[in-house]
Structure formats: C-alpha cells, structure tokens
Computed example of a mutant assay.
Amino acid sequence: MRHRRNRRGRRGRSPGRRRWRPRHWRPGASCRAAWRAAKALGYRRLITYTQDGESGASLRGAGWHVIASRPPRAGWHTPSRPRAGHGNDHVPRLLWEAL
C-alpha cells in the first residue's frame, strides 16, 4: 500500500488536505498584534484601508471598525512627482480604525 504522502496533488500537497497553518494561528491575529504593539509605543489611533471588494473579515474579527468610505483617487501622479500607476488607482476604499 502506498503512503498518502507519496500521492502528491498540485503544488506538492496531498489531495484532500488543507494547507498547514501554525497551531496558534487565528484569523485577525496579526491585526491584533499590530494594535498591541502600536499601543505599547504610545499610539492612540491605528488606521488602515481596504479596497472596495475586499471583505475585511480579519479586521472585523480583530475588533476593527469601518469609520469612513473614501472615494476613488485619480492616482498618485502629479506634475511635480511623476508616478507610474500600479493598478490600485480609481478604486474606492474603506477606512478602518482599531478600537
């Protein structure tokens, strides 16, 4: 009988198995850790943005709240600072705050 580990599927994973995650992994853990670190440094507010179409589930799970909706930017290019677009221009955003 062949061992299951020898029957590799795509990307070297065994068929039917989930991707390995550390035992202590929880959704939103890195968001919570970022807020704890910022508070320890004396910050009173921590914000981040998500693009329209992203769920923000990990932020919501870590206790963050949407505080504003931002309109799409025309881009970062200005005559005094020429910039190339990276595909994230003209996308509405949500502003999140850690509580």
Rank of each mutant, 00 (worst) to 15 (best):
G53C: 06
H77I: 00
R60I: 01
G16V: 08
L99H: 15
D89M: 03
R60G: 05
G56D: 08
G56Y: 07
P15M: 02
G42S: 02
R7I: 07
L99I: 11
W20S: 12
R32V: 14
L95Q: 15
V66Y: 01
P27V: 00
L99M: 14
G9M: 06
A68Y: 02
A38E: 00
A38L: 02
A38K: 06
V91Y: 04
A98N: 14
T78E: 11
G53D: 09
R81W: 11
S30N: 05
R83Q: 13
A68E: 15
R83M: 12
T50F: 04
R26W: 00
L99G: 15
W64Y: 12
R4W: 05
P72D: 04
A33N: 07
T48K: 05
P22F: 04
S14A: 05
I67E: 11
W20N: 08
C31M: 15
G12L: 06
S55D: 15
H3F: 09
N6W: 04
R19L: 14
D89A: 15
R5C: 13
D89P: 10
V91W: 09
R5V: 12
R32H: 01
R26L: 09
S30I: 04
R93Q: 10
N6A: 03
E54V: 08
N88D: 14
S80W: 14
L95K: 10
R23C: 00
D89K: 02
L59F: 14
G16E: 02
I47E: 13
R17Q: 12
P72K: 02
G28I: 01
R23S: 15
L41Q: 12
G75V: 03
P72S: 03
S58L: 06
K39T: 07
G9D: 08
R81H: 14
P92V: 01
P15H: 13
R21H: 06
R5I: 12
R70W: 13
W35H: 10
P72T: 03
Y43K: 07
A37Q: 09
